[in-house]
Simulated scan of single mutants.
Amino acid sequence: MSSTQMDYRLNDDLLGPVLAILDAYIDPYLATGLVSAGCVTKLALDGKRLQLGLVYPYPCMSQYRDTVMALTNKLAVLDAIDEVECEIDFQPKVYSAIASIAPIANVKQVIAVASGKGGVGKSTTAVNLALALAAEGAQVGILDADIYGPSVPLMLGIPNFRPVSPDGKHMTAASAHGIAAQSIGFMLSGDEAAVWR
């Protein structure tokens, strides 16, 4: 169950049927009904317009239209409802793998893409994953930690970006396709080699 606040302003005669319809709608990724998953955060009636608020635990912007249409059709069988006004948002859960390590400020999730072998598609996978999450509405940053062959700048189409450091401690991130990006590749030009001790 989600920890999101629920605001139900329907009379008891209507609340039960609405919740039953919403819980009968099985989310394909949560594999449960919207009420059971804790996604339904708001129910109110303005005349015959149902105001419905949904909060998903994963980014799902591409599903918004189909979800609203399906729910509108299902809820329209109730005499008290002529239309549905739906607001959808997402709040991913924050997981901590190691309780003793403090979380990174303003970062809710970290996905690591790694391999001990070169040339297996780590950067390609990371960039495509970042683009897919951004397309679904997530705020995404990508850190290219490959210090020997950084390819994220090229893959994002920003190989000539040069970061600046306004305070001498932090570098500005590049922005491309809705993604914030940081890479050692931004500090090298052409075929320059990075020599690390």
Rank of each mutant, 00 (worst) to 15 (best):
N160H: 10
T125R: 03
I81R: 02
S36P: 06
Q51A: 14
A181T: 04
N11T: 13
P163H: 03
A31M: 10
E136S: 01
T67M: 14
P150F: 11
A135I: 05
E192P: 00
V40Q: 06
I101P: 09
A176D: 03
Y148A: 08
V140A: 13
L75N: 00
G38C: 09
D13V: 13
V113G: 00
M171K: 02
L188K: 05
G157I: 07
E136G: 01
Y58D: 03
S100C: 07
A76R: 14
S2H: 15
A194V: 10
V110L: 13
T4E: 13
V120E: 11
V35P: 05
I104N: 01
S2W: 15
Y95K: 15
M155G: 07
V94S: 15
A97N: 15
A31H: 12
G121R: 05
G185N: 02
G38L: 02
D12M: 12
G121F: 00
A194S: 13
P57T: 08
S123R: 05
T72N: 08
G168K: 12
L52E: 00
G38W: 13
L15A: 11
S123W: 00
A105D: 12
V152Y: 11
L54C: 01
I179P: 11
N11H: 08
A97W: 11
T124N: 06
I111G: 00
S123K: 05
T172D: 08
N73S: 15
P159F: 05
L78E: 02
D167L: 06
C39T: 07
F90S: 08
T67W: 01
A24T: 10
L75M: 06
V94W: 07
R162W: 02
L129G: 05
G168E: 08
L71Q: 11
V84Y: 05
L75R: 10
P163K: 06
Y8W: 00
T125W: 02
A76N: 10
I147R: 01
A180N: 13
K74F: 11
S183Y: 12
T125E: 05
A176K: 03
R49F: 06
S100M: 04
P150E: 00
P103C: 09
A174R: 01
G16Q: 14
A99N: 15
T124E: 04
G137A: 02
L50T: 07
I98L: 12
L34A: 01
S115D: 05
T67V: 13
S36Y: 06
L22A: 04
A76E: 08
G53Y: 04
V40I: 14
L22P: 11
D12S: 12
D167A: 04
L50R: 01
V195E: 03
Y64L: 12
A99C: 05
G149M: 00
G33R: 01
A174N: 04
G178V: 05
V84E: 07
D23R: 11
A145K: 10
P159S: 04
S151Q: 07
L34F: 04
K48L: 10
L50V: 07
L22N: 02
N11P: 07
P153G: 07
Q139K: 15
S189I: 07
S189M: 11
D46S: 11
D79Y: 06
A20W: 05
A99S: 10
I21K: 10
P166V: 05
T67P: 09
G33W: 13
R65Y: 01
R197S: 08
D82R: 13
T32E: 14
A114W: 01
D13L: 09
V127C: 00
M155W: 15
P92Q: 09
P59D: 08
P17V: 06
V18M: 02
